[in-house]
Nucleic acid binder design. Structure first.
Lengths: 335, 335
DNA sequence: CTGTTAGCGCATTCAT
DNA sequence: ATGAATGCGCTAACAG
């Protein structure tokens, strides 16, 4: 590629490198209009571009932020990345990505690698938000998205998990559904799942966990995994209108597949609603009521917040905050 | 973060910075075993990490590669990125991402920005592979994926578009389907679409384009856009078994939605197969026969190739090649 | 307004 | 086997 340096430009323009540097940094006050236009011309003609590497070294700063995502194949992730990228571009940051592939060890390595490479800030979609690797990270330069740590030491951007579920389930109740079930992958301590379930309990007032149904994570849809039995048992219990809320679209897929095998249909035999919305849901007839989360906005918010933290100097560090991004409730004909 | 430099380490170990540098670069031959272990200890204890920025500047190299994707929300893209990332990690490259959002202008800006930032190489999933921006790029440091330029000047990794469609359609013919249609977004000059259609014609030997049905790009599934009429007309033509091949999953969605509205079902009223496979297809009953492409491998191959190009010095530049990544044909019950 | 100069953190001859 | 010196391309005082 081009081999021009600031020296070459200085020589061509018959000025010093300092003047060129000033020009590059927009300090036009420090030069005559004459040299300013001359420089502009030369730089334009030579197609010269300052080396970011050298610049970073000299200024001892690095305008790149590092992103670690838990699982890039998770459809939730893509819009988040998209939001982050767009923001970074706008703010003049570069962004480097790593994928943990749901592997906690891998995540640790990735984060460490990025830190060693002196990124200015970190945005993390954590595999396990309660991992203690985050304790070594400073809230001054990192933001967590999606999954929320139990002990909050770092700013976190999450979607409205609890209240949106609560509202949707309340809606189901308003439509006469009395026997409600929350279907989810194992809750473990994933805040997304836990909070969605919390919303469910808030609406239903169930005291125990009898209405929490779990299906195994990442299983083949073609196999029943015993869920068929569970479903069958529930469905043969005829006193009340039965409704299901699924924790995400892949769980919904499990439920529908199971129902298909057992020949149950909605909204006749049961009502259903889900967290998440995807294009393929439009194929389903009747349409599925769902909670649409705005992942793109989550990405944007994360970067906005990070930029603020990076570029403002606080006299005293503010307490870590949790920002909740609102969702849309889409009502269709599934209950 | 840490403020240790190579000087500090040198001082602590009572050696010169040169020795430390040699240690860091694995030139153990140039020092005694004694200083080697001493250095190892100190570096370990101080948690010192050399500055990649300074290193890059000194060596005048930059181990990061730039990736430009046409549309990050395209489900094809995610596994490609995943493959690239994984490879980069393995080979010790960093990777920076940009999203063109299907905007050619934006893509140009992104690519230029990355070039200015002195990335070592470029992997491009192009918005418009025939754009002349690629003429300014050297085949020495760039690889194109997915969409294939008509005039090939840069190495390209694509999925097996033509032959896999040909084979699938031949399969449909073997099952007795005689009136076959290829449904696609407008072909324009997108190589993916063009090549898939070429495969279709190869199998069917249709001479004209009467059996090419196009649906508008990115439309709401809930609207018919006139496709319902087209479908209806075809379906009322009863002499032969009718079969459809859809160019990708989103087009499949269009077809199925339309069929749903008109109350046609497969494989009774028509047979169908599609390019691409996604998880939600498992919901469809009967199952849809499809061509599964290995996007992850495409990403890996792209990075493999790029690494080769970057790290080997050619006496004479080899001619640009097109690498075709094979697909899987999944036969289910949709025809 | 413009030029001189001393770093930024590291790699790399060339001596010793 | 080790060290001193020089430079990578740029920025930021400080002089003038």
């Amino acid at each position: 590629m081009d081999k021009f340096t600031i020296k070459d430009i200085a020589k061509l323009a018959e000025v010093s490198t300092a003047t060129v540097s000033n020009f590059l940094n927009g300090n036009y006050a420090k030069m005559s209009n004459n040299t300013r236009t001359k420089l502009a011309n030369i730089i334009n003609k030579t197609n010269y571009h300052p080396s970011t590497t050298a610049r970073n070294l000299a200024k001892n700063e690095n305008k790149t932020i590092g992103v670690s995502v838990a699982d890039i194949t998770n459809p939730f992730t893509t819009p988040v990345i998209s939001g982050i990228s767009e923001r970074c571009e706008k703010y003049g940051y570069k962004v480097i990505f790593t994928n943990s592939n749901n592997d906690e060890q891998r995540e640790i390595e990735n984060i460490n690698r990025m830190r060693e490479e002196e990124v200015a800030g970190l945005i993390i979609d954590p595999v396990n938000p309660d991992s203690n690797i985050y304790n070594q990270l400073s809230n001054a330069y990192t933001v967590i998205v999606d999954r929320q740590p139990r002990r909050n030491v770092i700013d976190t951007i999450v979607t409205d998990n609890r209240d949106s579920v609560k509202n949707m389930v309340a809606q189901m109740q308003a439509n006469g559904y009395e026997d409600l079930y929350f279907i989810s992958w194992p809750l473990d301590s994933f805040s997304t799942r836990v909070n969605r379930y919390a919303g469910f309990k808030l609406a239903t007032n169930y005291l125990d966990d009898e209405h929490l149904l779990t299906v195994p994570y990442n299983t083949e849809l073609t196999k029943s995994n015993g869920f068929d039995q569970v479903l069958k048992k529930i469905m043969t219990n005829p006193h009340k209108k039965i409704g299901f809320f699924t924790m995400n679209s892949r769980v919904l897929l499990q439920l529908l597949k199971s129902a298909q095998r057992l020949n149950y249909t909605y909204p006749t035999d049961f009502g259903v609603a889900t967290y998440e919305e995807f294009e393929w849901m439009q194929l389903l007839n009747p349409g599925i009521s769902c909670i649409r989360q705005d992942s793109f906005t989550i990405g944007c918010s994360a970067m906005n917040l990070l930029k603020d933290k990076l570029e403002t100097t606080f006299t005293n560090e503010p307490a870590p905050q949790v920002k909740v991004v609102p969702t849309d409730m889409i009502i269709r004909e599934s209950f």
